[in-house]
Simulated scan of single mutants.
Amino acid sequence: MRALYVSEQGCYLSLNDQLVRVKRQETLYAEVQLPLLQMILIFGKSQVTTQVIRACLWRNIPIVYLSRMGYCYGRILPIERGYRQLARYQDDLTLSDRLQVAREIVCTKLRNSRTVLMRQHRRQPSSSLDLVIQSLAVLVEKVRQADNIPRIMGLEGAGAAQYFSAFGDCLSSDEFIFGDRSRRPPGNPVNALLSFGYQVLWNHLLALIEVHGLDPYVACLHEGHRSHAALASDLLEEFRAPFIDAFVMYLINRKMMDVRDDFVYHNGGCYLNDVGRVKYLKAFVKRMEETITDEFGESQPKWDLLNQQVKAFKQFVYDPVKQPYVAYQIR
C-alpha cells in the first residue's frame, strides 16, 4: 500500500480501468494501481475526475486536499467511515486512562528526541548536545511523576525547547541556520522543512485514524475542537524526532536541499516552493518505504509503523486495563 502525492500544480487525475493516472497536459507524472493506494494527497490546485472520486469512495481511500504549504483544508471520505461506535468508548475513557496515555506519549517523545541527539553526539561530540541529552533524561522522570495534563504539557514544552536549542548543532551546512523553532509562520528554511514534514505526517495519521473508525477529535494529550483533530496531534508526538527531525537533518547534511532554489518567502514566513516540495516528498516517500525490523524480527516499511500505532490506540480504547497504550520508541 502506498500514498500518492500530487505536488505539481495544474495536474489532472483520471482513472483508466484500475489505474489512477496523474498528468499535466501531455506529461504523465505518475501511475498507481487503485488496489495499492492507501490515500491521495493533493497539494495546491489540481483536478480529480468524478470516476477517481467514486472509485476511492468505494475502496475507502481518503482524498486529502492541502494548501501548497501543506495545511489540510479538507478530505473526501465515504459515509460509512464514521466513528460513532468507537466514539462511545473514547468518551468513556477515565481521567486515569487519559493520563496514562499522555504520560506515555510525552515520555516517548522525549526519549526519541534524546536518542536522535545521542546519535548525532556519537558522530560529532558536543558539550551543548551532552547537556541537553542529560536534561531530557531528567524531564522524562518528571513526566512519569506528573499527575495532571497541564503539568505534562508544560514538561513537554520544556523538553521541546531544550531539544531545539541543540538542533542547530546537528546541521553541518553553513547555509541552513537554525536558532529556534518558529511555526506560524516558519521563520527560515529549516523551520519550513520541519513544519511541512509534521503536516504531511499529521495528515497520514488523520487518515489512518478515520480508517480505523476512531474519533479524531477525542484525544488524551491535546485539546480537540472542530478545527483541530487532536488525536492526530497526540500520535504525531512520538514520530516527530525519528521520522521528521532526523529526516530534515539527513536532507540538509546530505546537501539535498538548496536554500536559494527550494524556498519562497511571503506573508512574513518561509515555505517550500513547488521545486522544494517535489524534492522533499520524493525523498520522504523513499525513506518511508525503507524496511525496518520490529521486535519480533519481522521486516516492515516505516509506513506500517503509523498504522501499527493507530491500531494500538484502538485496542487501548476497547480495553484500557488489559491493553494499555505503548508508544513507538526508537532504539
Rank of each mutant, 00 (worst) to 15 (best):
R88T: 07
V116G: 03
R98W: 13
C107V: 11
S113R: 01
V101Y: 03
H121W: 03
D97G: 11
Q100W: 08
C107S: 14
D97L: 10
R88G: 14
D91F: 13
Q124G: 03
A102V: 11
D92Q: 13
L95F: 13
R98T: 14
A102S: 15
V116N: 02
P125F: 03
N112Q: 07
V116P: 01
R114T: 00
Q124S: 11
L95P: 05
N112K: 04
Q124T: 11
R122I: 05
V101L: 09
L110C: 11
L99K: 15
Q100H: 13
L110W: 04
Q124F: 03
D91W: 11
L110Q: 05
E104L: 04
E104A: 12
N112G: 06
R103Q: 12
Q100A: 12
S113M: 09
Q90G: 14
P125Y: 02
A102D: 08
R111D: 03
N112V: 06
T115H: 05
Y89F: 10
K109F: 02
Q100F: 07
A102Y: 10
Q120M: 02
T108V: 12
A102F: 09
Q100M: 08
T108G: 06
Q120F: 01
S96H: 11
Y89T: 08
D92S: 15
R111I: 09
D92E: 14
Y89W: 03
R119G: 10
L95Q: 15
T115R: 09
D92T: 07
M118R: 07
L117G: 02
C107D: 03
T115E: 08
R114V: 00
E104H: 03
Q90W: 09
